[in-house]
Nucleic acid binder design. Structure first.
Lengths: 228, 228
DNA sequence: CGCTGCGTTGAGCTTCTTCAACGATCGTGG
DNA sequence: CCACGATCGTTGAAGAAGCTCAACGCAGCG
């Protein structure tokens, strides 16, 4: 069955028995969202969580004035909004598909049931939440203690480590979205890209960034150097 | 045994059998830290986690220039640095005792062992981590989308909800620490307290804050109003 | 009694945002 | 196939928020 195959590719479910995957497949809802479509809103009751199968989604907060702060951008295989399952609360943020996306929705009760029976699932879940916590801690640190150029430099280095071609990387989201992820606005981000290029740190061609001076970028990232 | 009694008071361990508490008591290390003493540093190997028994500790990040961002302030009964246990990583932040504190250190392996055997412990842990995630998401939102007066107003309202006397609250940490928790510096915090007092929102007498205009404070918190 | 840590206040400056305008790109419909 | 609009990215000028540096009062404690 096709659904099982997708479930088996989700790291969170690694180590589950076939029977348990079957159980999941029985209770999940297969959903599709178009680009820009909202998956849930902040305050919606968290009666379950999601696994992204294909596409790309963002989790974000909104201010009164409509400014957005992205918390996560998720790709295929990643679960999202799991925390709401355990806290029993409503979703603490918004979720929207950045491109056409397919997601599985797993209702809370069935999942809670399964997790008490499967220690490996519980361990996977805790490992996943630990990673999130660590990532959030890093974001808080960045937002509070570092300036935008430093945050951007860190992110570029992070991206380059993720991707194969060491010194040439692809932004996987639009620059406007990247600005929101960095905790700033497109104008500011654009100016910083311009400065980084002018100073020979990078070469920016649309969504492709070439790293010219990696050491310099690393110095920027830790805050040892300031962008002039 | 005195240690068991303390363990039983920790919400995380609620639902554990006596035998399991005994096991924990066998493997934990009872430690004491004086005011200002470091419990662990960022990058230290996370070979276990802690439960705070008495006292008060902070978890924080440091910038190169020495500025500090507090992530948590914990009181008795709260576990900390659990995430390191599951991610298997080193600690992603610093921990320091704000006052003389007693903590239990629980080594990783023993705890991992116990958690696979006890679904209720796993559920408690996941609930706890969910709360942390939600709190962090709120902090990120605040830091990125709100100004300091708004953050402070939120915090004051939060504190007043925690404490008994509705319109008079006690700051449980120093103002310098509060500044670090709000993601700012003491000077800025001080000016904002002064403005809030001048505008009749609060009356500030050392660590005691009287809320004069709660509605106004709530408007500040959501960002509907700006502090002049 | 002096010292140290904490909080406050002032002045100047940096960073970032806001507001505005404009160019480029892309998809769509005529 | 072209024209159009919408979205996205860029750039400029001005303003606001918060930080740095410096000085000082005050309280607590040795």
């Amino acid at each position: 069955m096709e659904i099982i195959k997708h479930l088996a590719n989700v790291p969170l479910f690694k180590g589950l028995a076939q029977k348990q995957l079957d159980e999941l497949a029985m209770v999940l809802t297969d959903q599709e969202f178009g680009r820009g479509q909202e998956i849930f809103a902040e305050g919606d009751p968290g009666v379950g969580f999601y696994v992204l199968i294909t596409g790309q989604i963002k989790i974000y907060k909104l201010s009164l004035e409509g400014r957005e702060q992205i918390l996560h951008v998720f790709g295929p295989g990643e679960p999202f909004a799991e925390a709401a399952v355990f806290s029993g609360d409503s979703f603490p943020a918004y979720a929207m598909a950045l491109v056409k996306s397919r997601v599985f929705f797993l209702p809370r009760d069935a999942f809670m049931d399964l997790i008490t029976k499967s220690p490996s699932l519980a361990m996977n879940m805790m490992a996943s939440m630990s990673m999130r916590l660590k990532k959030f801690a890093g974001m808080i640190e960045s937002l509070s203690l570092k300036e935008v150029p430093s945050r951007l430099a860190s992110h570029l280095i992070f991206l380059s480590a993720q991707q194969d071609d060491a010194d040439q990387l692809q932004l996987n989201i639009s620059k406007a979205q990247l600005a929101s992820l960095m905790g700033t606005i497109p104008e500011t981000l654009s100016r910083i890209f311009a400065k980084m290029s002018k100073n020979g740190y990078i070469k920016s061609e649309g969504a492709t960034i070439k790293i010219i001076n990696r050491e310099g970028l690393e110095d920027l990232a830790v805050g040892e150097v300031r962008l002039v």
